[in-house]
């Protein structure tokens, strides 16, 4: 019996969402009175022993370069084999793009119940139930897992990473790595920006900004805050901003600590992508904008005046701090 945590990496670096999964998995292990182990696939440049500080005692590594791209079928086969070999009864993923591709396959392969999009530790007082978000963030469900082996994928930004002391033992794991049936022909990663789903702060703009030429004030604010930038659907559809920035029901779903919406009215489809944010600030000149009902803080005012002042005030606060 142990908890196995899948450590997702990109270009040799462990993703932030995986650190959350590690902390979560280690806490599940504590709850169950067992040990937490990690598994990492592909070439990693980081010092993996340091991941011990998130509570894992051992990390299984399959450093086969063929695993540098995620292939759901190959990954599921390797992770399932590792889980069985290490006697894992709980397998933890991040519910990020990789987790969405792989966790379900692992669950089906091992006939293990899956809770996808978990947001809290399991309740083991009567069975094994895990809280997850449903209805696009408008509610939660407590889901019982009935099988002996359990798979949980954790919503990014929903569990706080805790680093303490400790080092992990890294062991090479000998498993079968099949040839992937899917051939990757091109990878296009947006570099130099904070990935939207992992960002602590997101600054987002809507039609209220009137045109792509006005995005400078938003970018300045984002830069000052170290935030990722996002936009509403009409802005993405009009190509004012790249498509991957569109947050909402049909776009990216985010759950940052702070979401600042500028000139976005807050249609229900937009809220479905952002309502898991911890703090929402809305800046809109229309006091009737529905977004104010979902907001924690708001300014009814002209974005073109308010936003530069806000950037300056944050600068001032930082200088004073």
């Amino acid at each position: 019996m142990s908890v196995l945590i899948f450590i997702d990496q990109s270009e040799g670096h462990v993703k932030k969402s995986s650190l959350e999964a590690l902390t979560y998995g280690a806490d599940v292990a504590k709850q169950l009175g067992t040990t937490a182990e990690g598994i990492v696939l592909g070439t990693v440049t980081e010092d993996l022993t340091a991941l011990g500080k998130y509570g894992v005692s051992k990390i299984h590594q399959v450093s086969n370069a063929a695993l540098n791209n995620v292939d759901a079928q190959v990954y599921a086969s390797v992770i399932s084999e590792a889980a069985t070999a290490s006697g894992a009864t709980v397998i933890v993923f991040s519910h990020n793009q990789t987790g969405k591709a792989v966790a379900a396959r692992v669950a089906a392969k091992l006939k293990a119940g899956l809770v996808a999009g978990a947001c809290a530790l399991p309740n083991t007082s009567n069975g094994f139930s895990v809280k997850k978000t449903v209805f696009s963030g408008k509610a939660y469900a407590h889901v019982n897992i009935l099988s002996a082996v359990k798979v949980i994928s954790l919503n990014p930004n929903s569990y706080k990473t805790v680093a303490t002391e400790g080092t992990a033992v890294v062991e090479a794991l000998a498993v079968t790595v099949n040839e992937p049936k899917v051939k990757i022909t091109a990878v296009n990663k947006i570099t130099g920006e904070v990935p939207l789903t992992e960002a602590d702060i997101v600054v987002s703009g809507g039609r209220g900004l009137k045109g792509p030429e006005h995005w400078g004030i938003l970018l300045d604010l984002a830069k000052e805050l170290g935030a990722a930038t996002a936009c509403s659907r009409p802005v993405g559809d009009a190509h004012w901003r790249p498509h991957h920035e569109h947050v909402g029901q049909t776009g990216v779903q985010v759950a940052p600590n702070l979401y600042i919406a500028i000139g976005i009215s807050g249609a229900i489809q937009h809220l479905a992508g952002v309502n898991r944010s911890k703090v929402i600030v809305v800046i809109n000149k229309d006091p009737e904008a529905p977004f104010f009902k979902a907001a924690d803080y708001g300014i009814v005012g002209d974005a073109f005046e308010v936003v530069p002042q806000l950037t300056a005030a944050i600068q001032k606060m930082k200088a004073g701090a």
Partner: peptide, 25 residues
């Protein structure tokens, strides 16, 4: 392999705190 035990609604938002546009500080 799973069954839903119960649902829960998130706590209602306390309501928006409005700040005057000339007082971003």
């Amino acid at each position: 392999l799973t069954s839903i035990q119960s649902f829960e609604l998130p706590p209602a938002k306390a309501g928006v705190k409005l700040v005057a546009p000339d007082n971003v500080a």
